[in-house]
Computed example of a mutant assay.
Amino acid sequence: MALELDLWWLLLFPAFFALGWLAARVDMRSVLKQAKEVPAGFFRGLDALVEEDSGAAVKALAEVARQQPAVQELPLTLGKLYRKRGENDRAIRLHQRMLESTDLPSEQRDAVRFELAQDFRKAGLVDRAEEILLKLLSGNMGRSARRQLLDIYQQDRDWEKAIATAKELRSDAHSYQHEVAQYHCELAQGELYKSNYPEARRHVTEALAANRKCVRASLILGDIEFAEGRLEEAIAAWQGIEKQNFEYLSMAAERLFDAYEKLGKPSEGIALLRGYQKTFPQLELTDLLYQKVATYEGEARALEAAREAVHARPSLNGVYRLIESQMDGLTPEGRADAEVIRTLVSKHAQRLTVHRCKCCNFRSRAFFWHCPACGEWESFTPNRSEIH
């Protein structure tokens, strides 16, 4: 019996191998057949995309789209290429033709409408883009549509709508609390300009409720308190930035000194600035401290403060102040030489000293709460750095 079973196994093994070989041949033939059915223009377009030649890619894929009208994904890709190349009119016409087609499956219509909304937005027709996106909110493209709407509301500075949309976008992956706090700060700043202090205070409270570490909210709160004459409360609000993010103390420094000065306590203000500079040498305080010390304690003490700052954190602006503070003690010839050096240092400081976005490394001489390059909030370095 055992012998018969072994013989059967010996007969079955070749059959198994033959079936495996046959299956592999069938699969390979199927793959080769499918590959031959793909138009050559598709591969030319793919190769052009790899080579970053969008013009050749558009031409090749447009040819394939004409040959294969039943493939709906290809016109979508082609429309994106048109939009990327700035050919917004062609992208709009393409997507509109797709929507007019009776062959377009209903489940793909929202995807085409979403692309059309992006076409309109890129072409500057924001109202038409918003109109389409609002109609997509209840469908399968709802989340993507809300993200686009949030960008539009930020661009249009419609902060109330931005707040409402960000709250609808909240998820475990992204709470949008950071952004909501900034939108409330924008509203608070606007009300502060109009001297509407109660409404400005309300938005600051909302900002801190959304993000208790929002430095900008503390800066505005201090401004409100200062404007209403509550100087001690203003000082407390600005000093609270040390616990939120000490790097932004440089933006509150002059405000703090002005409050102490108004209280008749300039020496306490100078002492606070000196303390910040020693504790946080990376803060950009050299110019401010030099000016205030020179005014209240004399040039000699100001020179000492400038020297300490430059030794703790060498910078072009610090060197400029150091040269300036010692010019009076030089001979006429030495003063002329120092003036040349000071002018050269000043020019280089203006050219090389910039604020930088920590997310995308965008550089600017002006400070922004909202990076104009990547759109991130509160990502700019408050203290300028020198380009190397």
Score class of each variant (00 low, 15 high):
residue 2 A to T: 11
residue 5 L to D: 11
residue 5 L to H: 13
residue 8 W to P: 00
residue 9 W to F: 10
residue 10 L to C: 07
residue 10 L to V: 06
residue 17 F to I: 11
residue 17 F to E: 04
residue 19 L to A: 07
residue 23 A to H: 11
residue 24 A to S: 06
residue 25 R to A: 07
residue 26 V to K: 09
residue 30 S to E: 13
residue 30 S to M: 12
residue 31 V to I: 10
residue 38 V to M: 05
residue 38 V to S: 01
residue 39 P to E: 04
residue 40 A to W: 09
residue 45 G to A: 00
residue 52 E to Q: 07
residue 54 S to R: 02
residue 56 A to Y: 00
residue 61 L to V: 00
residue 62 A to M: 04
residue 64 V to R: 07
residue 73 E to S: 13
residue 73 E to V: 12
residue 74 L to Q: 01
residue 75 P to V: 05
residue 75 P to L: 09
residue 79 G to Q: 03
residue 80 K to G: 13
residue 80 K to V: 12
residue 82 Y to A: 03
residue 86 G to L: 01
residue 90 R to V: 04
residue 92 I to A: 04
residue 100 E to K: 11
residue 105 P to E: 06
residue 109 R to P: 00
residue 123 A to D: 07
residue 129 A to Y: 08
residue 129 A to I: 03
residue 131 E to Q: 08
residue 132 I to Q: 10
residue 133 L to R: 03
residue 147 R to V: 11
residue 152 I to R: 09
residue 157 R to V: 11
residue 157 R to T: 10
residue 160 E to Y: 14
residue 160 E to V: 14
residue 160 E to A: 14
residue 162 A to M: 08
residue 163 I to W: 04
residue 170 R to C: 10
residue 172 D to Y: 13
residue 174 H to F: 15
residue 177 Q to G: 11
residue 181 A to T: 01
residue 184 H to W: 12
residue 185 C to S: 05
residue 186 E to L: 10
residue 188 A to G: 03
residue 190 G to R: 10
residue 196 N to R: 07
residue 198 P to C: 01
residue 201 R to E: 07
residue 206 E to N: 03
residue 207 A to M: 00
residue 208 L to N: 00
residue 212 R to T: 04
residue 216 R to N: 07
residue 217 A to E: 00
residue 218 S to V: 12
residue 221 L to G: 12
residue 221 L to P: 04
residue 221 L to W: 15
residue 231 L to P: 05
residue 232 E to K: 11
residue 233 E to Q: 06
residue 234 A to G: 05
residue 236 A to E: 14
residue 237 A to C: 08
residue 238 W to G: 02
residue 238 W to V: 03
residue 244 Q to F: 09
residue 246 F to E: 13
residue 248 Y to L: 05
residue 248 Y to V: 04
residue 255 R to F: 10
residue 258 D to R: 15
residue 259 A to V: 02
residue 259 A to H: 06
residue 260 Y to I: 04
residue 267 S to L: 13
residue 269 G to K: 05
residue 272 L to K: 08
residue 272 L to F: 15
residue 277 Q to G: 00
residue 282 Q to N: 11
residue 282 Q to F: 15
residue 288 L to N: 01
residue 289 L to S: 00
residue 292 K to C: 01
residue 293 V to M: 04
residue 295 T to D: 08
residue 298 G to S: 03
residue 299 E to S: 12
residue 303 L to F: 15
residue 308 E to D: 14
residue 308 E to C: 08
residue 309 A to N: 05
residue 318 G to H: 07
residue 322 L to T: 00
residue 330 L to Q: 09
residue 331 T to C: 06
residue 334 G to D: 02
residue 340 V to I: 14
residue 343 T to V: 13
residue 344 L to G: 12
residue 346 S to R: 14
residue 351 R to I: 06
residue 355 H to Q: 02
residue 359 C to A: 14
residue 362 F to A: 06
residue 365 R to K: 13
residue 366 A to H: 13
residue 369 W to Q: 05
residue 373 A to V: 03
residue 377 W to E: 02
residue 378 E to M: 10
residue 379 S to K: 03
residue 382 P to G: 00
residue 384 R to H: 10
